[in-house]
Design a protein around this nucleic acid. Structure first.
Lengths: 199, 199
DNA sequence: ACAAGCTCTGACCGATCGGTCAGGTACCGT
DNA sequence: ACGGTACCTGACCGATCGGTCAGAGCTTGT
């Protein structure tokens, strides 16, 4: 039986990428190891050789994105809040969305059903902290909704929306400024709050 | 074995409601007929007695929402476009979102993986028409993104977001005006094309 | 040449999947 | 009292689920 010369490290990366696509589009529960294996051109046993379990695979797939989001939040929290740091944060956030759109879509839309899985809970904690930070703790319903719409809307638009609303995915250099405009507009009243409120 | 006097019509409605919750939170592929049956207090066979198949159940669950959305679109298309009709449309749309939030969340986040199922394709067609109508056919990327974010963001916020961003679901009478403000703001540049800035 | 080790696979396991079917129970008009 | 019908269920079906395990093929160190 011929054994194509697989490039060491890359098999695991291929599997992660394939799994991510499936998780984002069919859902974690709806994705079988067999599907992932078939799509990547390996056998189911190979998947389980590289990853201890389906859940471990999900963990490895999502962890880089959660780490990155955590880093962005920490960086924002570490500085004095100003118009500059806020704008820098929004930029970081949009970079994050564009780079990790499949990961974001996955845990945005499945965090409820996958509660209990460590990486999902970690992601949930980060998102709640993010929301609390941006809303300054005063739980105005409108502010919460602004944040939720920005988060869920971006995740949806860049994964599901682009492929069936805009036919083909528009080039990143066109999407990015548009995203920046809309997200800034959504988050502006939340973070800026002009003058008087707390802090 | 005692047979409690089930109120004729209601069993099927119970099952639809239970199935909708599961579909929206775990996904169609991730929901088993057994889960639905257990959650509703019936046997799996009962589910298949009331609905020809799992897919038929999905169809019956989503069809009312798609019909309603279609009606809203037709009503908007039937009139001359003006500030009044646009505002009425946004109001209709928000009523729709609030009433059918689980249905919206279901086909918003799974239309890609469930392509081929009639009711899903129908929903997809309506959404594309909606997008084309609001964007006047000139496919500005920013306008498309505005619509996508409004649609996906609302679906996310009202299902996943409210329960883990805002702890408890805020009362509808508080959510509705906030939603109206944010959605109007998002869609305003798309439809109005004049409004220069925010308050 | 040979053993060790990494990668990959088919065969197999118990559990669960969507779906079929025969039958049991309650209520109906007659 | 009786047959029909609506509702519900357990037993069962082939397929597939996540996961285990014993190797096979290839590379490497010695």
């Amino acid at each position: 039986m011929p054994q194509p010369p697989h490039n060491r490290q890359s098999t695991s990366a291929e599997l992660r990428a394939t799994a991510l696509e499936q998780f984002a589009s069919v859902g974690f529960a709806g994705t079988s190891l067999q599907q992932i294996a078939d799509a990547a051109g390996y056998s189911k046993s190979s998947v389980l050789y590289h990853f201890a379990s389906k859940e471990a695979l999900l963990d490895e797939v999502l962890t880089p994105a959660v780490n990155r989001l955590e880093a962005i939040l920490e960086r924002f929290l570490a500085t004095e809040e100003s118009a500059l740091t806020r704008s820098r944060f929004v930029n970081d956030f949009i970079d994050f969305i564009l780079e990790f759109r499949l990961e974001l879509h996955t845990f945005i839309n499945q965090s409820q059903s996958l509660r209990g899985i460590p990486v999902i809970d970690r992601a949930g904690v980060v998102i709640v902290r993010l929301s609390d930070t941006l809303c300054h703790g005063d739980a105005s319903t409108e502010d919460r909704i602004r944040f939720g719409i920005a988060l869920g809307g971006a995740a949806y638009t860049l994964v599901a929306g682009m492929t069936f609303l805009g036919e083909e995915i528009a080039p990143v250099e066109e999407v990015r400024p548009a995203l920046l405009t809309v997200i800034t507009e959504l988050l502006a009243p939340v973070t800026v709050r002009t003058a008087p409120s707390r802090k």
